[in-house]
Amino acid sequence: MKPIYIHSAVCITAQDSFEDGIMVPLKTSEGKVQAKHPEYRDFIPPAAARRMAPAVKMGVAAASKALQKANVEQPDAIITGSGMGCMLDTEKFLNALIENKEEFLTPTAFIQSTHNTVGGQIALGLHCKAYNNTYVHGSLSFESTLFDAQLALQEGSATTVLAGCVDELGTEFVEYVRLKEQQETIPKQVPYGEGTAFFVLSQEVKEEGVILRGLQTFRTVSEDDITEKMLQFLRENQLETESIDAVFLGTTGDSYDGYYNVVSKSFLPKIVRIPFKEYSGDFYTCMGFAVWWAQYLLQEQCAPGYNCEPDVTPKYQNILIYTQEKGQNHSFILLSKT
């Protein structure tokens, strides 16, 4: 099967990721962290932006920049993932409904609360009539999106896919989620975050590029079995642990971090381990941020925000990303330099 190349990647998070700035760990005392929003008017006409909540603005801007970077005007498929959907407008409409006892409701927040608003708005902005789909499967929403993108390219229904994910903090529901988390014996230590990541994927060869080499998810795996699942995943992609140059781990500080410790032990001590949720904060589709960062390391051979020295031997050839949510929905993503 022909490899899938990442032709461009754009990300918005609490980090300076939209401008490829330096990644800095978030202060863990902060319960939640908002994204660093770029100047949206560079990407979205004001008339369209006036109804958009952060999720929609983030998604549309990142998608637009990703297409620009890849020199693509019209993708053959627009695939989006979101764990919680458009939370802010959901909260807005719900509260208006409750406060006004079902009277004097206006439709804007309801329309904007629909899960496929981001995918629909991207299509509308591009006048793109191609395949359009949205996945909303909790912490595997982005993985579902990538899975469909992979399928679309492999079956030949698309040659260029715009695939991405987005989640926004909102203002209210996240507090209930936090409340529930604080009741856990060992709650998550990372703050809640928000963000987006969009990618242009294609089987068209990109010289000196990065490929999406493998993607696999598991509903449930025990801590005892996770290493074997990971090794099997690497074997299926013709790799061993020694060939992995960096590992991204979804550590949050909760009682399920044992999975990461077990997986981490399989790799050489000297390689870099990046606890990516300490940078983006935790949200259902933060895996998009990890993929963006990993592809950056492979593409540029140095961390975002630093000047890369030319002509050095490549430091990064293969990167593995692993995350899970409360011991369930495990996901492995493998990226390689061509």
Partner: peptide, 13 residues
């Protein structure tokens, strides 16, 4: 047309 619906509610309210 969405704005029209917003204005309809505004007049009612």
């Amino acid at each position: 047309s969405i704005d029209a619906l917003e204005l309809i509610v505004l007049l009612d309210k």
